[in-house]
């Protein structure tokens, strides 16, 4: 996630920095730097997967099945003799692609739904009851069932996770819209004759998005974790696509003789998610000093 925050504080007195000042503040935050490095490594691996993978992630090698890590296969091989390291590098692509789709979709949908509920008070009750109902399901269970019903594919996994996580972004946007809509400059815009659409799009939304940006970083992390679960259960992208969760599932039956199959992809997931969580914490500290007291 690039820290390009759309005009977080254009008008009121909140102290969130912008532009170069924001970048400087973010880069002097230890968590942000560590997070950027960790997540950056994963993104780099995903982007250059075709060049840096030592082997073809799909090529079988029956002479070296369940092979222990050695000079040729740094992280060992699976039951078809496929290179684990290459599979992990390619697996990060799937995780990041799904994560990105989910973040974009939950971000846009959450902003639309949250703004509608927060601004048009009559719609608030019904819209938020639906969101509450969706949030009543444990997110991962809803996602598993949806992905299973839609059929295993990358897009369906992203759709399932979007349905599971959109209520969170909608809630957060609604809460900040409720605050911003009462501010004086909104009243001024209204007095000048601005319509609902203009007020929402020009005055309220841009000033309500800071918490959403922070939340989206966490949702990226959640989506990477959840995608791994979907693949592990077998309702994610279908084989032979290497995804981190399905590599772990492949190794499950060989935990005795080949523990490396399941071990390393989990570490790759943890690095990705830890990086994103650190970034999220850092963004929150810098963008919204008030929230700092609340959670951290």
């Amino acid at each position: 996630m690039p820290p390009s925050i759309p005009a977080s504080a254009t008008t009121d007195d909140s102290a969130a920095p912008q532009g170069p000042a924001l970048a400087a503040r973010l880069l002097s935050h230890r968590g942000v730097v560590v997070g950027l490095v960790l997540f950056g490594l994963v993104v780099l691996a995903a982007l250059t997967a075709d060049w840096i993978s030592p082997h073809d992630p799909l090529r079988n090698n029956f002479r070296y099945r369940l092979g222990a890590p050695n000079d040729i296969h740094w992280l060992g091989t699976d039951r078809f003799g496929r290179d684990i390291l290459s599979r992990i590098i390619h697996g990060t692509r799937v995780s990041l692609r799904i994560g990105l789709m989910v973040v974009l979709a939950t971000g846009v949908l959450g902003a639309l739904i949250g703004a509608t509920a927060g601004y048009f008070r009559r719609l608030d009750g019904p819209v938020m009851r639906v969101m509450d109902g969706l949030m009543a399901f444990p997110g991962i269970l809803l996602a598993i069932s949806l992905a299973a019903a839609l059929g295993p594919s990358e897009l369906n996994a992203a759709i399932a996770l979007t349905v599971a996580y959109t209520p969170r972004t909608a809630r957060i946007v609604r809460a900040s819209v409720l605050v911003v809509r009462e501010l004086d400059y909104v009243e001024a815009a209204r007095a000048l004759g601005a319509g609902h659409g203009r007020i929402l799009a020009r005055h309220i939304l841009p000033n309500s998005l800071t918490p959403l940006v922070v939340q989206c970083t966490y949702i990226f992390a959640l989506a990477v974790l959840a995608e791994a679960v979907l693949s592990f259960i077998g309702v994610g992208p279908p084989p032979p696509t290497p995804s981190l969760g399905s590599i772990i599932a492949d190794g499950r039956d060989y935990i005795l003789e080949a523990p490396w199959i399941s071990l390393y992809p989990g570490i790759a997931i943890a690095i990705t998610v830890l990086g994103l969580n650190l970034l999220g914490d850092g963004l929150r500290d810098v963008l919204d000093p008030r929230m700092k007291v609340e959670i951290r």
């Binding site: 791994a228 772990i248 989990g266 997931i269």
Partner: peptide, 15 residues
């Protein structure tokens, strides 16, 4: 605590 939050629980189970 943060590292714990970042681990996939099913993977931790296998470990």
């Amino acid at each position: 605590a943060l590292v714990g939050l970042s681990l996939p629980d099913f993977w931790l189970g296998l470990v």
